[in-house]
Amino acid sequence: MIPFDQLLVQAINGIVTGMILALVASGLTLIFGIMDVVNFAHGELFMLGAYVGTTIFVTTGSFWVALLGACLTLAALGAALQITTLRPLLGRDPLTTILATFGISLVLQNYALWQYGPVPRKITEPITGHFQLFHIEYPWYRLLIALLSALIIGGLWLFMKYGTYGIWIRATTQDRLMASAMGIPVPWVHTGVFAIGAAMAAASGVLFGPLVGVNHAMGFDFTLRAFVVVVVGGMGNLGGSILASIFLSLLEAFASLWVSPAQAVIVSFVVLILTLLFRPTGLFVPTPK
């Protein structure tokens, strides 16, 4: 029998990683929902964001400047990538976007390996305090991550709901042709959405950096997990992705009480396969009529 305190610690861990994952996945789901693009390079944007964060952190010494700088840099990179490779593919088979973003992910991952080397880099967390949770010292920083992720996602939601550009984005999702007829610059909305998604990936990369150390291979892991989350939550559904992130992270956290973390990943995969078989529209969306 697993003692209660261990279960509680794992539950908190699960929620914290779940919020990071939710931040990555909401960028992915935003891009998919609006552009029909499955961004295979999303994890690489996350990884590159973390690296840019370490570089800025080393020069300025401020975590918050690093966070902001990484978001802006990756937003610019995302916009450039969208304009050069995805815009020409608009109107072609959505599968070609998987291939194109897969090519981008190869380039970015190996660029990071070349530029930063195989040794993981550290970002120091902005607050180092701990609080007592049963017999262990639990870092405040982890709770801060969950809070910041929630704030960023909440900000995105408000922007989409009330901001003028947010309304443009939603209009483009609903009817691309009509939006363009109403004078909305659809190609630039796509570019903007990709930039926002990239910035969110970068933010999660910087926030996650202090927990594991930044390395070039962390991206692929997150691409896969974000895919699983987005499918389980219902493609293009923001609320569903967030719930699915927390749900799957909790499952993995509890599973890792019994098996190694490497094997705990299989739990998510099994949930994905069951979802696809029995409820392919996603677990956390209303049943379609």
Binding site: V38, P94, L95, I98, L224, F227, V228, V231, A262, Q263, V265, I266, F269, L272, I273, L276, L277, P280
Partner: peptide
């Protein structure tokens, strides 16, 4: 049972499951 991108993702996930095993 799945099409397009869902098929691509599922095959990817299966290969990862076997990789982990």
């Amino acid at each position: 049972r799945l099409r397009d991108i869902y098929f691509a993702i599922t095959t990817l996930v299966f290969s990862q499951i076997f990789y982990v095993i």
